[in-house]
Amino acid sequence: MDSLVLIGRLVLATLLGGVLGMEREARNQAAGLRTHTLVALGSCCFTLSSVYTEWVLQPGKSPDGSETDISRIASQIVVGIGFLGAGVILREGGAVKGLTTAANLWVTAAVGLACGLGMYLAAGVTVGLALLSLVVLRPVARALTPQPGRHGHRKQEEEDGAPANGEEPRPK
């Protein structure tokens, strides 16, 4: 594989992962710009390593009896990102927080994987559709479930000015 192609795929995965991370960062989520950038970059690097392994083990160049399956590393990326995503899901009282960020990390890994395989159009369209769902569908989700505390709604404060959930108010 040409060095410039390899570098280009890594850079594209990093940039596209960063685009998805910026939206999460703007929403002050735990997994933001840097996390999404690293997930896409790591996924791309694993994918390139997987693809490169097949190239290294070409017939006549590989040790006798050795074989490679480039799908093995990709499947492990999906499992690993599931574990990472589970780490950003939190339960606060009766509410579950972080599901969208976990799903966004999973999509970011797919974008990195697609960049590693050279599927640039799929990676770009995936980022566009993910941003569409994150930004454009937010008001739709708020309209469908207008409860305080869901989809970024602020919880209503009680008459004395304390937060409705009984926590200490934020300093002003």
Rank of each mutant, 00 (worst) to 15 (best):
T53A: 11
I73D: 08
S71H: 15
Q76S: 10
F46W: 00
F83A: 02
T101C: 09
L15G: 12
S62C: 12
L113N: 13
A30V: 10
T47E: 06
K155I: 03
M1Q: 10
I7F: 15
V111K: 06
L16V: 07
A40Q: 07
R72E: 03
A13Y: 11
R142L: 05
D64E: 02
T47H: 04
A114E: 04
P169D: 01
V136R: 00
S3Y: 13
G82T: 09
G80P: 12
R34K: 12
G161W: 08
A164K: 00
C44H: 08
L105N: 14
I89D: 04
C44M: 09
A74I: 13
L113M: 14
S71R: 15
Q156H: 00
A26M: 11
R91N: 01
V19R: 14
S71I: 13
N104F: 07
G82K: 07
L12R: 00
A30G: 10
G112P: 13
V111Q: 05
V51N: 08
A109V: 07
K172V: 01
G80D: 02
G21L: 03
A141F: 11
G60M: 02
L20E: 08
T100K: 11
M119K: 07
A74W: 03
G161M: 07
E54L: 11
S43T: 10
L38E: 06
V111F: 03
G21F: 03
V78P: 14
T47G: 10
Q156G: 00
L15F: 14
S75H: 08
G118W: 09
L6H: 11
D69S: 04
I81A: 03
E167Y: 12
W55D: 12
L15A: 14
L48W: 01
S75T: 11
A114N: 04
D64H: 10
N28Y: 09
L137H: 02
I81N: 08
S66G: 06
L90H: 02
A114F: 07
K61L: 09
E157V: 03
A123P: 14
V19I: 15
G87H: 09
L129Y: 09
S71F: 15
V5K: 09
L105W: 14
L113F: 15
A109P: 14
L137G: 03
A109G: 15
E168C: 05
T37I: 10
G112Q: 05
I77P: 09
P63A: 01
E67Y: 11
G94D: 02
S133M: 11
V51C: 12
V136D: 01
E67H: 14
T68A: 15
L20C: 08
P139G: 07
T145H: 06
A141P: 15
G87Q: 06
V51W: 05
A103E: 09
V111M: 06
A26G: 03
V5C: 14
G128L: 11
L90W: 02
G93Q: 02
L129W: 11
I7N: 13
G8S: 15
G112K: 04
R142W: 00
A26Q: 06
V88W: 13
N104L: 10
V79T: 15
E23G: 00
I7R: 04
R138H: 06
L57F: 04
S71K: 14
E157A: 01
L113D: 07
V79P: 12
